[in-house]
Design a protein around this nucleic acid. Sequence first.
RNA 1: CGGGAGAUAGCGCAGCUGGCUAGCGCGCAACGUUCGGGACGUUGAGGUCGGGGGUUCAAACCCCCCUCUCCCGACCA
Length: 403
Amino acid sequence: MKWSSYFIPTLKEAPAGAEAISHQLLLRSGLVHMLTSGVYSYLPLGLRVLSRIEGIIRAEMNAAGAHELLMPALHPLDVWQQTGRDKTLEDVMIRFKNKKGADMCLGPTHEEIITDLVKSFVQSYRQLPVTLYQIQTKFRDETRPRFGVVRACEFIMKDAYSFDTDEEGLKKSYAAMYQAYNRIFARCGLKPIIAEADSGAMGGKVSHEFLVPAPIGEDKVKDEAGVEHVAIEVGHIFQLGTKYTEAMSARYLDESGKQHPIVMGCYGIGVSRLLATIIEAHHDPKGICWPAGVAPFEVEVLPVQVSDVQAMSVAKSIYDGLTKQGIDVLMDDRDESAGRKFNDADLVGIPCRVTIGKRGLLEGKVEIKDRTTGVVEAVPLDDAMRHVIGIINGKNESAGQIS
RNA sequence: CGGGAGAUAGCGCAGCUGGCUAGCGCGCAACGUUCGGGACGUUGAGGUCGGGGGUUCAAACCCCCCUCUCCCGACCA
């Protein structure tokens, strides 16, 4: 991708009202744009990161045996009335009447909808267990949206739902999700604290929260020696039991022909919230330092001067070479001052930067910089490609490592 | 929902106890000079001062109402 023809509206200064670092950097690096409080557009670069996060989630959910589907965001209210959550969640539900006068709402979550769906297809123990998930937009009419996309009124969530014949099955399904969550967050460059938590309006007995320490956290966690962390909740998993399936009569027949309510679990990840959380965990005074697993591009090629014919031809050949290898490369081919291009590169935070300028070319070298460590190496031209690929592979490897 | 702060050009801001034909920096357009860490000069475009009402010869500025945004708290996934 060539920067000059792409859409990355970076800002020198943070817009007024953005206090949280992640919020400032999201805005400054041209990842998101606010429409109104708690409602955001994802710009091309932000969408790229979001897509990569979603890719990781899909890979791990699929590997854990979950199946993706997509449910509607528009719901008839009567589905919610079946469990009484039209009342419990009244405050956050965005409701209205359609033309026919029927009460409708925008889904704040999907337990009722998935239970209704599963109920119409699952009748036998032979069809269980099954775990289904979606990545979809949720709507919650927050009293106080906060910190950009951290607490938003419209946000993207991965929600999975497991259905089992009994508690033992639920525990297995739950454990599989628990493991998948560990892998997902590790691949996103996060080390969450896992805490047993209150199930709140969700219901059920056992639940675990995945919390990433950050100054803008809204939750407080203790695990080591009474040290209290403020943290952002990025995931929450629940052993729901039969709360929803009983209320909605979602039952199955066992081997002896006896009816039982299906035993359910639900598993959420705040996908758009992860965008902000990753930035909270990976930034420095100059900007974002994307972990390799979620970076919008893997390499930025930066010819210092577009008018320098030699530098441009070297930059193009590196760009073409890496692109041919299937590497996502962004080339800053803008006719801008060097300082501006360097600052934008630091701000946008692509993990590996190749700088091509007169200074290095005099010695037949280009500069390769690791955004996270800040380490800069001058590398001979013929070695540049191989060197970059080495760095990327190293980063990908360590990103894939799960402790 | 309680408490606080704020809304002036695309962005960041100044504009005091009314005198404004509303400024500054960045950005934007054009030309010239520059060219390895947000370069410089010249010229230029860009504003219902959040909205409505009121006081006044005169309102960005004072008064009332409303809307929106941000922060703290409560609530929440």
